[in-house]
Write a protein that binds this DNA or RNA. Structure first.
Lengths: 152, 152
DNA sequence: CGCTTGCCTGGAGTGCACTCCAAGTCTCTA
DNA sequence: TAGAGACTTGGAGTGCACTCCAGGCAAGCG
């Protein structure tokens, strides 16, 4: 048996709050890629890459071929950002995007997909809590020793 | 500003419970690599790799050069496993291992390192909870539509 | 008109954390 | 004692999620 499970990676991620310090320019509904960069915190590279791999619904273009994102696109990117933060693999998100494109008859499968992921997230929260206990324990020990040596 | 934050990856990880379904063979204190594989759920490749990169304290060898792990090594691997599950980068864990090797005068820095990581973990738990809300919301919608279409 | 700035593309490169390979040595069981 | 299976090494390969690059187009400005 090999280890097939993937490992979570560091998330020193900007929090949701950080990432959205730039509000949506109101009411225009035709955002340039750099506006979306400011809004989402994703790089322009990443936004184009999301499109290439099918993680974005079709993005509108200006008459010269530049991308123009809508509010709906930003909503979608909000969701993708959430799922990304919980560690859903990009491939799964692409699958979900596909189901959305296919229309209403995929509701059941979308529900299954999200439910499975929700279980993952719950499991992960439990794991994190159990690690928190270990960290608390270790930190207490170090803190106690430090206090002892400082107080002489 | 580019996105410098890393993203969590999928953790369909065996839970702690799964990973330790194989108990420590009691009292021998000289485990072969395959026993450690069973105990930790890590692959032998990974165990050797951990050693190469300095993430393990020195591991004992048999007279013919095969690895013999002690209970202390298993304890260390338990801790590493916990940190790994919380997404601490391997480089940080290596740094921590280094500090441990250097002795008691590194207590303060070890405490700092773990405390910083604890903050990361807390932040992540909060993020996961907020995503859970979004998932609940979406799933409710799908479930409601499914019920509506099933009931006709 | 030239310059800067922003955007476009396909494809190559990066960093992380493994994961595997080849070729040889050791250990255990029948 | 023979053969299967476990263990050893350095180095190469893999998969994921970006990240960057070269080369080019389009708009605005002095």
């Amino acid at each position: 048996m090999t280890v097939t499970d993937r490992v979570p990676m560091s998330v020193r991620a900007c929090s949701q709050l950080d990432r959205q310090r730039h509000a949506r320019p109101q009411g225009r509904d035709r955002y340039t890629i750099s506006e979306v960069v400011d809004y989402t915190g994703l790089s322009a590279h990443t936004l184009r890459w999301y499109e290439r791999i099918g993680l974005m619904p079709h993005v509108d273009r200006s008459h010269t071929g530049q991308r123009r994102y809508t509010d709906k696109d930003l909503d979608w990117l909000d969701l993708v950002g959430k799922l990304r933060l919980t560690g859903m693999p990009v491939a799964d998100m692409v699958r979900y995007a596909q189901l959305v494109r296919e229309g209403d008859h995929t509701f059941a499968e979308r529900e299954r997909l999200l439910s499975a992921h929700r279980e993952d997230v719950r499991r992960r929260i439990a794991e994190l809590h159990s690690t928190l206990d270990v960290l608390d324990y270790k930190i207490d020990i170090y803190a106690a020793r430090r206090r002892a040596s400082e107080g002489v």
